[in-house]
């Protein structure tokens, strides 16, 4: 079982976490439908290092993790406000 370091709770078994998808900017409310469709449906699924949303389930705490999706190595984790300024 992998370990993930939660910015609030410290290192925990990965079973305490839920995946929340890639971090990506939300389109403007009035953006064209195509832009929204890309946001909602299109996932690049590229190998390499991604920023992802993760949830620590027991505390309902959302944070951001940097993960190499090729090797499944978790590189670093951040409070959301450290990334989304």
């Amino acid at each position: 079982m992998k370990i993930m370091n939660c910015p609030l709770n410290g290192p925990r078994n990965i079973s305490e976490f839920a995946y929340g998808g890639e971090v990506k900017p939300t389109p403007d409310a009035q953006a064209p439908t195509q832009e929204w469709a890309d946001y909602v449906y299109y996932h690049a699924n590229q190998p390499g290092i991604l920023r992802e949303w993760w949830l620590h389930v027991p505390t309902s705490y959302w944070f951001i993790a940097e993960r190499d999706v090729t090797t499944d190595r978790i590189i670093a984790t951040f409070k959301p406000e450290e990334v989304l300024r």
Binding site: N9, R12, S15, E16, H56, V57, P58, T59
Partner: peptide
Amino acid sequence: IAQTSVARLNA
């Protein structure tokens, strides 16, 4: 304090 899973419950 540990906020974690105990017997599969959040605790």
